[in-house]
């Protein structure tokens, strides 16, 4: 049964999604942050974060998600992530003393690696989400014709 007033799937799916989407998001963030001491890391966590957004979009229709994160903003966030990674790499050879991606700061337990993980998580989650968005919006355009 489709609810005609509100886009998206049925009430059951929406209620369950309300509960789970946030949990999936938090689990993704957890995976990103513990990447340097165990299995996980930026890529895996980023994929999970993107999946939570995709989940929301499937359940509530695209407008709900697009209001918060549209394509242009996603592109900007993902390229910011990539730039941040490159800048972190350049931090290594400040003043041309050490090579690219060299460890400079001895903090926490793993140096810069957690920060790399976070940056990659941002890059991957937004990148994966905008690819999904691009494909979905492409078919949306075709249906309108």
């Amino acid at each position: 049964m489709k609810n005609k007033e509100a886009p998206g799937m049925s009430l059951i799916v929406k209620s369950v999604t309300r509960l789970t989407a946030g949990l999936i998001l938090i689990y993704g963030i957890y995976i990103v942050f513990r990447g340097h001491i165990g299995p996980g890391g930026g890529f895996a966590g980023g994929v999970i974060i993107a999946l939570s957004l995709v989940h929301l979009m499937l359940a509530f229709g695209k407008d709900v998600v697009l209001k918060r994160l549209d394509e242009a903003r996603g592109i900007i966030i993902s390229s910011l992530g990539a730039l941040a990674f490159l800048i972190l790499g350049i931090v290594g050879f400040l003043g041309f003393k050490a090579p690219f991606l060299k460890e400079r700061f001895e903090h926490f337990s793993a140096g810069l690696i957690p920060i790399y993980d976070v940056v990659i998580g941002v890059l991957v989650s937004s990148g994966l989400f905008i690819t999904f968005l691009a494909l979905v919006l492409l078919t949306g355009k075709r249906e309108k014709k």
Binding site: L135, L138, R142
Partner: peptide
Amino acid sequence: MVILVALALRIYE
């Protein structure tokens, strides 16, 4: 894969 799927969608269009 993403680029191939995007191309396929465009071709279908």
